[in-house]
Design a protein around this nucleic acid. Structure first.
Lengths: 215, 215
DNA sequence: CGACCATTTGATGGGCTTCAAGAGCAGTGG
DNA sequence: CCACTGCTCTTGAAGCCCATCAAATGGTCG
């Protein structure tokens, strides 16, 4: 259960620590005292909570440039490494307001995503979100498992799998194994996701994309 | 379409304005420039967005003491008065960090609520949330319509109505018309909602309850 | 009373879950 | 090298829950 944590706190004063964690590692647990927040440098992180019936709810995925763990004074959700990751750990201090704002923003986007009523719509929206992390036309990595996606979107792994192949069958995406896809019909996919062209820009004023012009 | 706005900006310097709005009034619209945020003094407010297929998503309900409209630089959702309301309008300034934190908090709770998979679970959780705004054993007001609840929980008005009477039939609540209920079996309702006794306290470290001891 | 609205209730069908089994793939050890 | 194991992902079949279509009820206001 304990994990290989290699801490390289040499970088800066002890107000900012860099740490590497292996895939699957826990970063913190629901209920922990929370005094610091994190920034992803490399890899992908998921946050999750459990419902009383035992089923898991993944409340967010976080990529390089994203921040997470701003909850206080206690963790309301746990955080885990989806892939091998490098993180920056920040001390809490006034002025971390932008971090809060970004967290709120991503929470609101996620609420809107969950508002989609059918499985295809939700998954399509999710794929668009992933694709926005990549360049246009590039292959898109799906670092998380089908079960992760399911617990994120409120579906079952089976439905996710079926729906994925369904979207591929419609020639909106092309699958190259379970963990890689490429968008074939961007317009069609966005339409399925219920996202207008204009909105899709708004959806990620993203820190990972160099060209983050928000007008 | 325009609305009776009586503005009583006498209260304080022009950095803090009080305003009264009639039930159904719009407070701001999706896309508007956003420079101020609001605090509810009296009544209930809803925020909402629309999906591409036209269906409505209510992203939150806000009661006396709650804050809303912290999004920037543009409104990502519109806000409307569910009942007659009195609001305080705040200028944006550093130090509104606590407002952000509260907004994030309520967003996360809502995500968790949407994570419930069945209609009964969601509605039960929603009722518990409402009940937490009231004293123990008191009658609980349901200021919003069935359609509002439906668009909030991702259900239809019909399912909400059916499920409501179903929960009443199980003697977990007692209905006194569509807009008032009373909890008969708190333990049973919480269990249905998938909320443990311990958690139910955590769920509302609420500004509306005087006794907000969070340990 | 009659019109209108919100809510309730009934009947049917579809989409997702559930249960079940098979396919693909990496790691291990004989 | 290949059988064996364990895992994730895929696919099939049956059932249930909720959306949809449709209609009735109850309340408010003219």
């Amino acid at each position: 259960m304990t994990l290989p944590v290699r801490e390289t706190d040499s970088r800066l004063a002890n107000s900012l620590q860099s740490l590497d964690l292996a895939k699957g590692s826990s970063i913190y647990f629901e209920g922990d005292r929370a005094t610091r927040w994190y920034e992803v440098v490399r890899g992908v992180v998921r946050t999750c909570r459990f419902h009383a019936d035992g089923h898991r709810q993944l409340t967010g995925f976080f990529y390089a440039g994203d921040v997470f763990g701003v909850d206080e004074p206690r963790r309301t959700e746990s955080a885990e490494a989806v892939t091998d990751v490098t993180l920056l750990r920040h001390e809490r201090e006034p002025g971390s307001e932008t971090a809060l704002r970004r967290a709120l923003d991503s929470a609101q986007r996620f609420i809107f995503l969950l508002g989609h009523r059918t499985a295809v719509e939700r998954l399509a929206a999710f794929l668009v979100m992933i694709a926005n992390r990549h360049g246009v036309g590039e292959d898109c990595a799906v670092p998380m498992s089908r079960a992760d996606i399911a617990d994120h979107l409120g579906l079952t792994m089976h439905t996710v799998s079926r729906t994925m192949t369904d979207i591929a069958r419609r020639k909106l995406i092309a699958l190259d194994g379970p963990q890689v896809f490429r968008i074939v019909d961007p317009e069609g996919l966005r339409e399925l996701a219920g996202i207008s062209e204009a909105e899709s820009v708004l959806l990620h004023p993203s820190p990972t994309k160099p060209d983050g012009a928000l007008k």
